[in-house]
C-alpha cells in the first residue's frame, strides 16, 4: 500500500506493470489514470495543481487505508501529481488489487470519488485568454456522498 505525491510525470503503463509484479496470486487488478483534459473547442495550454502537502499526504493515506479495509483489498496505490502539467499527461493513478473483480472496481471508484472532494488539491487551467481556477462540481460532491 503506498501513496506518492510528485511533481514529475510518470509512465502509467510502467506503474501498472510494477504494481502487478507484486500481485501475489490475487485475481483482479484495476488501474484508473486521470489525464489533463484539453478539448478541441476549448483547448488549454497547461494546468497547475496547487496542493497542501501535509494534509494531502495524510488524507490520501487515510483514504487508502479505508479502501483497503472496506473492500478487503490485497494492495492499493495512489500516485498524484502537483505543479505544472500539460494536456494528455497523467494527473493521478489509482491501482487496486483484490481476490475478485468487483471489489477492485468498487475500490478504485470509491478512492477517486472521495479523493476529488477530500484531498487538498486545486486545479488552475491556463488558456491563451488567461487562467482560471476550476470550480468544484456538485456532481463530484454527490459522487462522494454515495459511499457514506
Amino acid at each position: 500500500m503506498s501513496v506518492r505525491l510528485q511533481q514529475p510525470t510518470f509512465d502509467p503503463g510502467a506503474e501498472t506493470n510494477a504494481f502487478l509484479e507484486n500481485a501475489g496470486g490475487a485475481g483482479a487488478a484495476v488501474t484508473f489514470t486521470g489525464l489533463v483534459r484539453s478539448l478541441p473547442e476549448d483547448p488549454i495550454i497547461s494546468m497547475t495543481l496547487e496542493h497542501y502537502p501535509a494534509l494531502a499526504e495524510s488524507q490520501l493515506e487515510t483514504l487508502l487505508g479505508d479502501a483497503m479495509q472496506r473492500f478487503s483489498l490485497t494492495d492499493a496505490t495512489i500516485i498524484h501529481r502537483f505543479g505544472t502539467l500539460y494536456p494528455g499527461e497523467p494527473i493521478v493513478q489509482v491501482m487496486t488489487l483484490a481476490p475478485h473483480r468487483q471489489a477492485a472496481f468498487d475500490a478504485a471508484n470509491f478512492i477517486m470519488d472521495v479523493l476529488k472532494t477530500n484531498a487538498p488539491f486545486w486545479k488552475k487551467e491556463e488558456r491563451e485568454t488567461g487562467s482560471d481556477w476550476v470550480a468544484a462540481r456538485q456532481s463530484d460532491d454527490e459522487a462522494a456522498q454515495r459511499w457514506q
Binding site: 497542501y52 495524510s58 479523493l115 476529488k116 472532494t117 486545486w122 468544484a136
Partner: peptide, 26 residues
C-alpha cells in the same frame, strides 16, 4: 492542524488553521 474540519470546530490549542476553496483534485 492538518485535519479537515467544519466551521463549528473550536480553535483552542490549534497551531495551524488552513482556509481554502472546495477541492478539485483527481
Amino acid at each position: 492542524d492538518e485535519e479537515l474540519v467544519d466551521h463549528q470546530t473550536p480553535l483552542a490549542g490549534a497551531k495551524t488553521i488552513a482556509l481554502f476553496p472546495p477541492m478539485t483534485g483527481g
